[in-house]
Computed example of a mutant assay.
Amino acid sequence: MTKWKAARRARALTVVAAAVTSLVGVLPAAASSAADDGPGADSRLPHRGYVCDRVEHDRGAGVGSGDCRAVRTPRHGHVRDAFVIESRRTHYRVVCTSKRGHVSGYANLPKWVRGASCHRA
Results as ranks from 00 to 15, higher is better:
residue 1 M to E: 13
residue 1 M to V: 13
residue 2 T to P: 15
residue 3 K to D: 04
residue 4 W to E: 04
residue 5 K to L: 12
residue 5 K to N: 13
residue 6 A to R: 12
residue 7 A to F: 06
residue 7 A to Q: 01
residue 8 R to Y: 09
residue 9 R to D: 12
residue 12 A to F: 01
residue 12 A to P: 04
residue 13 L to H: 15
residue 14 T to K: 14
residue 15 V to W: 02
residue 16 V to Q: 13
residue 17 A to V: 10
residue 17 A to K: 05
residue 18 A to H: 07
residue 19 A to Y: 09
residue 19 A to E: 14
residue 19 A to Q: 11
residue 20 V to L: 15
residue 20 V to M: 14
residue 20 V to T: 13
residue 21 T to W: 07
residue 22 S to Y: 11
residue 23 L to D: 11
residue 24 V to I: 05
residue 25 G to E: 01
residue 25 G to T: 00
residue 25 G to R: 02
residue 25 G to Y: 00
residue 25 G to C: 02
residue 26 V to L: 15
residue 27 L to T: 15
residue 27 L to Q: 15
residue 29 A to K: 13
residue 29 A to G: 14
residue 29 A to Q: 13
residue 30 A to M: 10
residue 32 S to Q: 06
residue 32 S to Y: 10
residue 32 S to W: 07
residue 35 A to H: 13
residue 36 D to I: 07
residue 36 D to E: 03
residue 37 D to S: 12
residue 38 G to H: 12
residue 38 G to T: 14
residue 39 P to D: 14
residue 39 P to I: 15
residue 40 G to F: 06
residue 41 A to G: 14
residue 41 A to D: 15
residue 41 A to C: 15
residue 42 D to R: 11
residue 42 D to V: 13
residue 43 S to M: 12
residue 43 S to V: 11
residue 43 S to Q: 13
residue 44 R to T: 09
residue 45 L to I: 15
residue 45 L to D: 13
residue 46 P to S: 13
residue 47 H to R: 09
residue 48 R to W: 05
residue 48 R to Y: 11
residue 49 G to W: 01
residue 49 G to T: 02
residue 49 G to A: 04
residue 49 G to D: 08
residue 51 V to E: 02
residue 53 D to T: 03
residue 53 D to Q: 09
residue 55 V to D: 02
residue 56 E to D: 14
residue 57 H to K: 14
residue 58 D to W: 06
residue 60 G to Q: 10
residue 61 A to N: 06
residue 61 A to Q: 04
residue 62 G to C: 08
residue 63 V to Q: 01
residue 64 G to L: 00
residue 67 D to E: 14
residue 67 D to S: 14
residue 68 C to A: 07
residue 69 R to M: 02
residue 69 R to W: 00
residue 69 R to D: 00
residue 70 A to L: 07
residue 71 V to A: 04
residue 72 R to N: 04
residue 73 T to W: 03
residue 74 P to Y: 15
residue 74 P to C: 15
residue 75 R to L: 08
residue 75 R to M: 13
residue 75 R to N: 13
residue 75 R to W: 10
residue 75 R to C: 09
residue 75 R to T: 10
residue 79 V to N: 06
residue 82 A to C: 08
residue 85 I to F: 08
residue 85 I to S: 05
residue 85 I to L: 12
residue 85 I to K: 03
residue 87 S to D: 06
residue 88 R to S: 02
residue 88 R to K: 11
residue 88 R to D: 01
residue 89 R to Q: 05
residue 90 T to M: 01
residue 90 T to L: 00
residue 91 H to P: 01
residue 92 Y to F: 07
residue 94 V to I: 08
residue 94 V to W: 07
residue 96 C to T: 13
residue 96 C to S: 12
residue 97 T to C: 02
residue 98 S to F: 03
residue 98 S to E: 07
residue 99 K to G: 14
residue 99 K to M: 09
residue 99 K to E: 12
residue 100 R to I: 01
residue 100 R to K: 06
residue 102 H to M: 14
residue 103 V to M: 12
residue 105 G to V: 05
residue 105 G to Y: 12
residue 106 Y to L: 01
residue 107 A to C: 10
residue 107 A to I: 09
residue 107 A to R: 11
residue 107 A to K: 11
residue 108 N to Y: 01
residue 110 P to F: 00
residue 112 W to M: 10
residue 112 W to P: 00
residue 112 W to A: 11
residue 112 W to K: 03
residue 114 R to M: 10
residue 114 R to E: 06
residue 115 G to F: 05
residue 115 G to K: 00
residue 115 G to I: 03
residue 117 S to N: 03
residue 117 S to C: 00
residue 118 C to E: 03
residue 118 C to D: 02
residue 120 R to L: 07
residue 120 R to Q: 06
